[in-house]
């Protein structure tokens, strides 16, 4: 297993695009998640120009345990960047025909896929670690109470966020294998949410019940949007096991379809 991960990392770590894209991903992720208070200040400034006053200290954006759901939700938007990297990594293998040579050299098709999946796992875990560190540090800075009791509340959002990133990367991997061309794959990837939204809007009758099992929907449902709570609205501040189950099924399907495609085609 580790040996397969090593193979894929060897391909990526000498690839400049990989460092640029991953660098952009982690830097923007870090800056965005860490600059919430700056954003609130800017917001307060703007609204004071219109005569409204907002007391930003009343908004516990980075207070334990709110910080966990807030940050994992915001971080979810950035997974697209990581997914584009995954697409490039797969479609490169087809453009350079190296997938063919890898198999000639003695990887099985399943091992080849495994090496890609393992990289997805690694990237997902790194995202989680990054968000956790930022959440932890900002939490320590801004929380009025830094007692462990609050800090360890709601940590369930991290496994949910991990699943969210991994599921989306699995999806990217699958369309990479199916389409094999980087440009087209990236466009499909970026339009996926929109295409799904169009389908969902046009659902009628009993089919409306199917909405939660749509792939993009189920992936976004893992960490629900938290900010409405600052406008005194009721939100879902827990991870629903239902969404986890649906997302897990999709993860399995995405990777299984990649496997079928790879197994059946002449490379």
């Amino acid at each position: 297993m580790l040996h397969l991960l090593k193979i894929d990392l060897k391909k990526l770590t000498s690839y400049r695009t990989f460092w640029v894209v991953c660098g952009l991903y982690f830097v923007t992720l870090a800056f965005t998640t860490a600059s919430g208070m700056e954003f609130l200040k800017w917001l307060a400034n703007k609204s004071s120009e219109f005569g409204a006053s907002v007391n930003i200290n009343r908004i516990p954006l980075y207070h334990f345990p709110d910080v966990w759901q807030n940050l994992t939700f915001i971080s979810g938007f950035f997974k697209l960047v990581l997914a584009i990297m995954v697409v490039i990594s797969v479609t490169n293998e087809y453009t350079y025909r190296t997938v063919r040579q890898n198999i000639i050299d003695g990887l099985s098709r399943w091992e080849f896929l495994q090496s890609k999946i393992l990289t997805n796992v690694l990237l997902s875990f790194m995202s989680v670690a990054m968000v956790f560190i930022i959440g932890f540090v900002t939490g320590l800075i801004y929380s009025p109470s830094t007692s462990i009791q609050y800090a360890i509340q709601d940590l369930e959002f991290f496994p949910a966020y991990l699943l969210e990133v991994f599921a989306f990367l699995s999806y990217a991997l699958m369309i990479g294998f199916l389409v094999q061309r980087s440009g087209l794959t990236i466009i499909i990837l970026m339009l996926s949410h929109m295409i799904e939204a169009i389908i969902k809007v046009n659902l009628k009758g009993w089919a409306i019940e199917l909405k939660p099992i749509f792939p993009m929907e189920s992936i976004s449902n893992l960490v629900p949007m938290p900010f409405a709570r600052y406008a005194f609205q009721e939100i879902q501040d827990y991870v629903s096991l239902n969404s986890v189950a649906i997302a897990l099924v999709w993860v399995f399907l995405f990777n299984y379809l990649s496997y079928l495609k790879l197994k059946r085609s002449d490379i």
Partner: peptide, 21 residues
């Protein structure tokens, strides 16, 4: 011949050695 164009000859062979164990 099929190799990773952005890798050096040496690195390509190192990768091959990993694949062939």
């Amino acid at each position: 011949p099929i190799f990773y164009p952005y890798l050096s000859g040496q690195k390509n062979l190192e990768l091959n050695a990993l694949v062939k164990q």
